[in-house]
Write a protein that binds this DNA or RNA. Structure first.
Length: 311
DNA sequence: CCAGACGTTGTT
DNA sequence: GTCTGG
DNA sequence: CCAGACGTTGTT
DNA sequence: GTCTGG
């Protein structure tokens, strides 16, 4: 399942990170960022994004400018949790849970199938997502932060994401983003103002993730998958769905339960914590003593090295 | 015909 | 228990 | 997803 | 809005 994400990049950093190969120009281009009304709310970078928050989402430029070239992309801020198209009144007052959309239900769904068939495919951009372990019953529900494997030892070919981006203002590099397949919809309020909203598609977990949770988001692991999911003009719905598979190229670590409260948005939310010492410090105080002793030892070594360097 | 669902999760 | 807010 | 409310009155 | 159930 996917009910919390993190994305700390600002608009410009994000445009940079979402560069893609434009086939007609044969070069990498940044998607343009088109702000929407969205009830006056804007995207704000956060390490703890919850449903109803506004986050940037990739869509095919064709969905908005019919004359644009195939494959061109646009970034749009949208609200997490689709507002049903038939809904009237306050956009928050629909009673459905729409932050996730089960892939096995889309085809028969009164809500999602018309959206899918009208080309409402989008890609949710994040640095990672949070998952609370439900497979084992422990005293506390342990949260984990999950993200793409940050493996840059392998060569990056034309089909892969560019891994760095430089602008005059900022340098942002060596971080692989998490791209999730989703469905989006444009809803009009009583004054005919547009609110864009989305739902993250979920799948049954594979062996990589099932130890943690039985569901996981539909993660797009390579450039071809992103391209295919966004290209609503040339890739039919059924075929696009068939490309959504449980991802394997993932990495994770346990995080503090401060992430439980969505009011806490700081970088502490995705910081790695040591579960071993947490358990052992309460059960085996000696282990903790050895760890501290080792730490003292390594600190001495560091001091020794720095003394060497100075000489 | 009208009423009611339309969605997901986790837990018992 | 169930709904709303973040 | 989790946390937190879940209610009304009258007075400052 | 549109479909299903009664």
């Amino acid at each position: 399942m996917c009910g919390r994400t993190g994305l700390s990049l600002d608009k410009e950093q994000l445009r940079c990170a979402c560069r893609y190969r434009d086939k007609s120009l044969n070069d990498y281009v940044k998607p343009s960022y088109l702000t929407e009304y969205n009830d006056g709310k804007e995207y704000s970078p956060s390490f703890n994004i919850a449903p109803t928050d506004i986050t940037p989402v990739l869509v095919s430029a064709r969905n908005f400018q019919k004359d644009s070239d195939a494959g061109q992309r646009i970034l749009k801020p949208m609200m997490w949790g689709i507002i049903p198209p038939w809904h009237k009144g306050d956009y928050k007052s629909h009673k459905l849970t729409t932050n996730n959309c089960r892939i096995e239900n889309i085809r028969y769904s009164k809500l999602y199938s018309p959206i899918l068939n009208n080309g409402g495919r989008c890609v949710i951009v994040a640095e990672g997502f949070y998952e609370w372990q439900t497979t084992i019953k422990t005293k506390i529900k342990q949260p984990y932060y999950i993200y793409m494997k940050q493996d840059f030892t392998q060569p990056v070919d034309d089909n892969c994401q560019p891994t760095s981006c430089h602008t005059t203002e900022n340098v942002w590099e060596n971080k692989r983003l998490l791209y999730m397949a989703g469905l989006y919809n444009v809803w009009q309020d009583s004054e005919n103002k547009n609110i864009y909203s989305y739902s993250v598609i979920t799948l049954e977990s594979n062996e990589v993730m099932s130890w943690l949770h039985d569901r996981m988001p539909a993660i797009l692991e390579c450039e071809q998958q992103i391209e295919s999911w966004l290209d609503v003009d040339n890739v039919p719905a059924e075929k696009a769905l068939s490309h959504l598979l449980p991802a394997k190229n993932l990495e994770w670590h346990p995080v503090s339960t401060i992430v439980n409260n969505s009011k806490y948005k700081s970088s502490d939310c995705n910081k790695k914590i040591d579960l071993e010492s947490k358990v052992k410090s309460s059960q085996k105080p000696l282990t903790e003593w050895f760890k501290k002793a080792n730490k003292r030892k390594s600190e001495h070594e560091i001091d020794h090295d720095s003394v060497k360097r100075k000489l």
